[in-house]
Structure formats: structure tokens, C-alpha cells
Simulated assay, not measured.
Amino acid sequence: MHSTPKPAALAVVLRGQDALLVRRKNEPDAGLWGFPGGRIESGETVFECAVRELAEETGIHSSAQDYLTTIDVIRREDDEVRFHYVLTAVLCDYLSGVPQAADDAMQAAWIKLTDIAEARIPLSEHVASVAQMALALREGSIDS
């Protein structure tokens, strides 16, 4: 069991009307689609982590642009905390690469934003709302 929250970053990359998602191999959320990301290493910024994790999990290169939101992911089992991650979602600009699953991702793919909004694939919690935030920020309908 994990008792201390683990800080992590998510890389939210949009390209046209698609978002880059990975299907997770490991808990939490094994088998579900979500944004690439992982734990922040000592001395690493949230932006650096998002860019690094994105490259490790998908082979996609990007530049981090803006903070989107922070999400608590807490899983309990028998009234004990099993996982507690504090995820900071970062909007990243796509630079290059073709999605290839690696590290702890089973699959990596560009997924239509409409498919995410309508949950046409099994998604981790908050994926649709974070994708909507990223789209709104990209289109300039919310302030950063």
C-alpha cells in the first residue's frame, strides 16, 4: 500500500481534431486509455516530466506550453489507500514522431476528440474533461 501521494505529470497533445492517448499496461487504470504521463523525478519540473514521459511512452516529441489542471487519483482497498497520485495535466505542442507504444503503454494512438467526448473507448476518469480543457485553451476560449 502507498500512503504518500506521488506527484506526476500528464502530457496532453492535440493534433487537428485528435488527441494522443495511451492504453495503460499497469495499475492504476490498466487497460484504460489516458494521456501519457508518469511520476516526476527529483529535480525535474512538471513540464520536463510531461515531455520526457510522452517520449518514453509514445516516441512523440513535444514542447510543454501550459498547465491545464491538477487531478487527484486515489484508489482505496479495504479502507486503505492503495494508490494516490497528484496528476498535473500539461498542454504540449506536437513536434514530431509517430505513436509507438513503449514503457508502460500497451498501445498509443491519435484518437478523435469526438470519440473521447462520447467515450467510444474505455477511458480513465477525467480524460474527456481534460481533452475539452485542452481544446478550449488551444482555441483561445479560456484564459491560461
Rank of each mutant, 00 (worst) to 15 (best):
G16E: 13
E48P: 03
A9H: 06
E118M: 10
S3R: 07
S141I: 12
A89P: 09
L137P: 00
D18N: 15
E44K: 03
T114K: 08
H126R: 12
I71H: 13
Y85T: 02
E77G: 04
E139K: 13
G34P: 08
A11R: 01
V13C: 04
L123K: 10
A128E: 12
R75T: 13
I142W: 09
I60Q: 01
M106G: 11
V81S: 06
V22C: 08
A105R: 07
Y85D: 08
L91I: 00
D72M: 01
A11T: 08
Y67E: 07
W110M: 06
I116T: 03
S42E: 14
A109L: 06
I71D: 12
V12C: 14
P28A: 08
G43Y: 10
T114P: 01
V130N: 04
V90G: 08
R120G: 07
G31L: 02
V86P: 00
M133P: 00
E48T: 09
L95A: 02
A11W: 03
T88I: 02
T69C: 12
L123F: 10
K112S: 15
G38A: 08
R75Q: 12
P5R: 03
F83K: 02
M106C: 07
S63V: 15
I111C: 07
L32E: 14
D78L: 04
E80W: 09
S62A: 15
S42L: 11
E77A: 06
V86N: 10
E139W: 05
H84W: 15
S63K: 13
C92F: 03
R75D: 11
L135Y: 03
I111P: 05
F35G: 04
A134C: 05
V12P: 12
Q17H: 14
G97T: 04
F47L: 04
L91K: 09
T88E: 11
L135C: 01
W33C: 05
V51W: 00
Q17S: 14
H126Y: 11
A108P: 14
P5F: 04
F35S: 02
D72R: 07
E77I: 00
E80Q: 14
I74S: 02
S3T: 13
M133S: 11
D18M: 10
L87N: 12
W33M: 08
W110H: 08
T88M: 04
C92M: 02
R138K: 14
T4N: 14
A119Q: 15
A8H: 02
I74V: 15
Y85R: 05
L95P: 09
D93S: 14
M133W: 07
T58D: 11
Y67T: 01
A102M: 06
A50Y: 05
E57I: 05
S42D: 13
A89W: 06
Q17M: 11
V130P: 10
L113M: 07
R82I: 01
K112L: 12
P122M: 09
A89M: 07
G59P: 12
G34K: 06
A134I: 00
V90P: 04
H2R: 13
K6V: 15
T88S: 14
E56T: 01
A128P: 00
I71S: 10
L113V: 06
P5S: 06
S141D: 06
V90I: 14
S96M: 02
R15T: 02
C49I: 03
H2M: 13
S63R: 15
F35A: 04
Q17C: 07
A64R: 04
L137I: 00
L32G: 10
